[in-house]
């Protein structure tokens, strides 16, 4: 039962975040690049004011899978690195924390670009 509730929260929060994105698309006609940028900045902000971890505690993937989570780990990495390395952390922290995701995106994009070619939309 507890697990079911956990998953329900994931679904509800994740869906809500995505729906906010859709509301932005409908009302302002913004492109997907702008949507992603907006949500990354929101993630950085949520982490910076220390709210992200509270949401993450009960929303799990619902807040970590949306690109907000990516922004939050950028900020978390930077803050952590600033704590341990000082000024250098501002430069090294963010990308170190998100290196896995960015590298994965680059590697898989490259591989699949070699394999596949684009399909015409119907």
């Amino acid at each position: 039962m507890e697990m079911f509730l956990d998953y329900l929260w994931v679904f509800l929060i994740g869906g809500l975040v995505c729906m906010i994105g859709q509301i932005l698309i409908i009302t302002t006609n913004i492109t997907s690049a702008r949507i992603l940028v907006t949500f990354v900045i929101v993630g950085v902000f949520l982490e910076a004011i220390g709210v992200f971890d509270y949401i993450s505690a009960f929303a799990g993937a619902g807040i970590n899978v949306p690109i907000i989570g990516f922004g939050a780990s950028l900020a978390k990495g930077t803050i952590g690195a600033v704590k341990s390395q000082g000024l250098l952390g501002i430069f090294t922290g963010g990308l170190t924390a998100t290196a896995g995701g960015i590298a994965a995106a680059i590697i898989f994009a490259f591989i699949f670009a070699l394999i596949f070619r684009s399909h015409t939309k119907k």
């Binding site: 995505c18 992603l36 994965a104």
Partner: peptide
């Protein structure tokens, strides 16, 4: 729409 743009999968899609 936003349902598949906002998650990290949308980020992957926008690179691939």
């Amino acid at each position: 729409g936003g349902g598949s743009i906002v998650p990290i999968t949308g980020f992957s899609n926008s690179i691939t």
